[in-house]
Design a protein around this nucleic acid. Structure first.
Lengths: 386, 386
DNA sequence: TTGATAATTCAATACACTTGAGTTAATGAT
DNA sequence: ATCATTAACTCAAGTGTATTGAATTATCAA
C-alpha cells in the first residue's frame, strides 16, 4: 500500500519565478499601500532592475498605478506605485441551503455589486446556472470588463465528504461527493477557490489587516473557526478543519457542544423562539436589553472564554477575531464580558494586540470572504505544491 | 503603529530556483525510496533535462547513489537513484531541565550515535559549550566528515516568551528572552532549527511515513501537540502552538487540565508515587497489571477520547499519532481502549487510515525529532518567506 | 527480426534575474 | 550659490537555469 501522501512539490523555472515574483510585488504594494521600486526590491531580496521590469509589466497590465513620488532624505525621490482598484475583480459566492449570495469586489476589496437569490432546488446544475446568471448580471450592471475577472471564491456549507457531522442539517445535501471546484471552474471559465464560511471570512480579515497568524470565530448558523498560519489557511487533510462548534465544553447544565451556547441558533433556544433570529432581530433584543437575551450573553461569555483557552493553547495566534452574521455591538459586548483565561500561552505580558477582537460583521461577511480567497491568490506567491 | 505583520515574501531567481529544485528532487527520491529521472521530472513538472542536470550535481555532491535500473514495460529502463545515507548528517539536541540528549543521524534517518549528559547549570554559555562538546565527541567517534553535518535541530522546553504558562516548571528558566537560535548558530557554525519536543517528534514521523497533514500527541513530562499542515509545522505566532496539556476537559472529579489525566506526571499521581516514573517503571506496571495503573488507563482513555474529538474537529488531520516517552505497549493498549467520538469530522465512512495510531516511542523520541527538523529542510523546498 | 515505446543525452535556445556603469534629482555642507 | 553626497532609477551586457527538439539507446511486443 502506498502511504505516500506527501505533496508533490512543483519544480521552479524562469516563467514560474516571474509569476511568483509578480504576485510578491503586488502583495507588497497592496499591504503597504504604496511603495517604490527600490524599497520593494530590498524587501523581496530582488535587484532593483528585476522589480523595475516587473512593475513595468504590471503597469502595462493595468494592475498598478503611479502614485507620485516620495523623497525620504537625500537622493532621487522614489516613484511610488499603488494597486489599481480597477485592475482586477473577484467574484464571491456564498451558497446556503436556502439562498445564494454573490458579490463583486475590486482589487482594493471594495464591494461594487451584490446579489441575493432564494433557491428551491439544491441540484448542482441548477445552482451553477444561477451563479452564472448572477455573475453576468453584476458584470453587466457595473460595466466592468469581464476579462478582468480573476476568479471566483465559492463558499459552500461543510462539512465536506461523509463525516460524523454529516446529516446534522448544516451541510448541503447532494454535494458531498461532487468535485464542486472543477464543476464551477468549467462552468464559469474562471479559477475557483472553494472553502467553508469561516475560512473565507478569515481570509478577508487577512487581506484587510495584514495579519498572518490568527484565528477567526465565525458566527454563521452554527460556529466555525478559520485558522490562518503563516498567511495560509489551515484547511485540514479533508478540508474540514475548524469545526469548533462540535467541541464539547462545560456548561451549567453539564457538558455540551460549544455551538449550543455560542451561536445564532443557541440564541433561538434561549429566547424560546419558534424560528431562527436574523441579525436585525438580535440587534433589537440587544438594544432592548431583553432579560432572556442577557441570559444567553452570560452563557455565551462563559463558552467564549473556554473556546478562547482552547484556541490560544492549541494555536498561539496573534489574536482571535470574532465576526459573521451577528451585530457588531453584540460581539463587542460579548468580548467585553468574556473573562480571558489565565492559563494560556496568549496570556503574555508583552502582547501588543488584544486577545479577542471584533472583525467584519453583517450578512455578507462570508460572501465577501469568498472573494478575498481570490484576492489573496493575486497577492501571494502560490505555495509550490500540488 | 505598524500593524503589518505579513511575511515579506522572498523573490525568486535562477539560483534560488535551482536550490529549491535540488531539495524537491531529493525529497521526491527520499519519500519514494528510489526513482528515475523521467519519473521525477513528471512529478515535479520539470523537464527531464533539468532533472538530469540536478541529479548529476547531487551525485557529484555525494547525496545520491545510482541504484540499478528498472524497466517498466517497453522503452529504455530507467536508471534509479536513491538517497545516499552517508551523504549528510543531522545533529539532534534535546535540552531538558536536568540533562542534555544528543543524537547524530544520517540522511536515511538512522541513528549513528547518541549521548546523554546530566547538567547542573542552565546558563546559556555552559549549555552551548556542552552541546559543542557532545557534537565533537560524536563526530570523532563515528569518524564522519564534519563538513557533511547539515545542521542542528534543537529542542528546548517551552513555552517561549512570558506566557500564562510560564513558571509552571516546564520551561527552561532564563531562556525565555534569549535568541537561542542565533546563539547556537554562531556557536556551532551550523544552521539551527529550534522547536519544542512535540513539534520535533511530529516532524520525525513525517519524514518516516510521508504524512502531510496530521497531529502528534507527544508524551513528555506533560502533554504536547505537534501539528503538521501541508507538510509544514504549525508553530503559532509566537512558537507556542500545541500546548494542549493545559486545555480543560471533563473528568470524574470535574473540569481539569488534560495533562492531569493524560501524561506521565498524571501516572505518578494515580500511583501516589513520590517521584516521577520513568519509561521502564511504567512498562513494569503495565505487565504487572497494577490496579492503580489500570485506574489511570481508564481515566486516560476518557481524556484521550475527548482530546481526539477536539483535535479532529479543529484540524481534520489524516490521523493522530501518539508517541514520546511512554512504552509502546501502553500507548497501543490506550488506543485500543479509547472510544472514538462519533461527533467528529474524522468519523468518516471512507477513512483509509486509523484515527489513532502509535508512533515512535522511547527516551530519544524528541532528540531524534530534533534531527528530523534538519532532514526535513534538506528534503523540502523552503517556503519563500521571511 | 522489426517496429513501437520510453529514458536519456546533446546542443541550441529562451527566459528572467544580476551586475556595473551611467543618469537624474533630491539634500546638506561649504 | 555651489558642490559633494546620497539614493533611485535605467541601460546594456552578462550569467544561471530551464526548455526544446533531435539523436541515441535499450527494452518489449508483434
Amino acid at each position: 500500500m502506498d502511504m505516500n501522501i506527501l505533496p508533490s512539490h512543483s519544480g521552479s523555472n524562469a516563467v514560474r519565478s516571474r509569476s511568483s515574483n509578480r504576485q510578491a510585488v503586488l502583495g507588497r504594494i497592496q499591504s503597504a499601500g504604496q511603495m517604490g521600486r527600490a524599497e520593494i526590491a530590498r524587501s523581496l531580496g530582488l535587484s532593483t532592475q528585476a522589480v523595475s521590469n516587473i512593475i513595468a509589466e504590471l503597469e502595462e497590465d493595468g494592475l498598478l498605478l503611479e502614485a507620485g513620488t516620495r523623497s525620504g532624505g537625500r537622493g532621487l525621490p522614489a516613484v511610488q506605485y499603488s494597486v489599481n482598484a480597477e485592475g482586477g475583480y473577484a467574484l464571491g459566492v456564498e451558497i446556503r441551503p436556502d439562498a445564494i449570495f454573490a458579490a463583486l469586489v475590486d482589487l482594493h476589496g471594495n464591494t461594487i455589486a451584490t446579489r441575493r437569490r432564494a433557491i428551491k432546488n439544491n441540484k448542482p446544475d441548477k445552482l451553477v446556472a444561477k451563479v452564472i446568471k448572477l455573475r453576468d448580471e453584476m458584470v453587466q450592471k457595473t460595466g466592468i470588463n469581464a476579462e478582468r475577472l480573476m476568479g471566483a471564491g465559492i463558499v459552500i456549507p461543510g462539512p465536506f465528504g461523509q463525516t460524523g457531522l454529516s446529516g446534522l442539517g448544516s451541510d448541503l445535501a447532494g454535494w458531498q461527493s461532487i468535485d464542486a471546484r472543477t464543476l464551477f471552474e468549467d462552468a464559469l471559465g474562471l479559477p475557483v477557490e472553494l472553502s467553508n464560511d469561516a475560512n473565507a471570512a478569515a481570509m478577508s480579515e487577512r487581506i484587510a489587516h495584514g495579519l498572518s497568524n490568527f484565528a477567526y470565530l465565525y458566527f454563521g448558523a452554527g460556529l466555525g473557526l478559520g485558522l490562518v498560519n503563516q498567511g495560509q489557511l489551515v484547511a485540514g487533510a479533508f478540508g474540514n478543519a475548524g469545526e469548533i462548534g462540535h467541541v464539547q465544553i462545560m456548561t451549567a447544565g453539564g457538558p455540551a457542544p460549544l455551538e449550543q451556547q455560542l451561536s445564532r441558533v443557541s440564541i433561538q433556544t434561549f429566547m424560546r423562539a419558534q424560528q431562527p433570529l436574523d441579525i436585525d432581530a438580535i440587534s433589537a433584543l440587544f438594544t432592548q436589553k431583553d432579560p432572556r437575551f442577557w441570559n444567553w450573553l452570560e452563557a455565551a461569555a462563559s463558552a467564549l472564554s473556554q473556546a478562547t483557552g482552547l484556541i490560544e493553547n492549541l494555536f498561539d495566534p496573534q489574536t482571535i477575531i470574532l465576526g459573521g452574521a451577528m451585530p457588531d455591538a453584540v460581539l463587542s459586548h460579548l468580548i467585553a464580558q468574556t473573562h480571558l483565561p489565565d492559563l494560556s500561552v496568549s496570556n503574555r505580558t508583552d502582547n501588543p494586540i488584544a486577545r479577542l477582537q471584533c472583525g467584519t460583521c453583517g450578512r455578507m461577511t462570508a460572501t465577501l470572504g469568498a472573494a478575498s480567497l481570490i484576492l489573496n491568490r493575486a497577492f501571494t506567491p502560490q505555495a509550490a505544491s500540488l
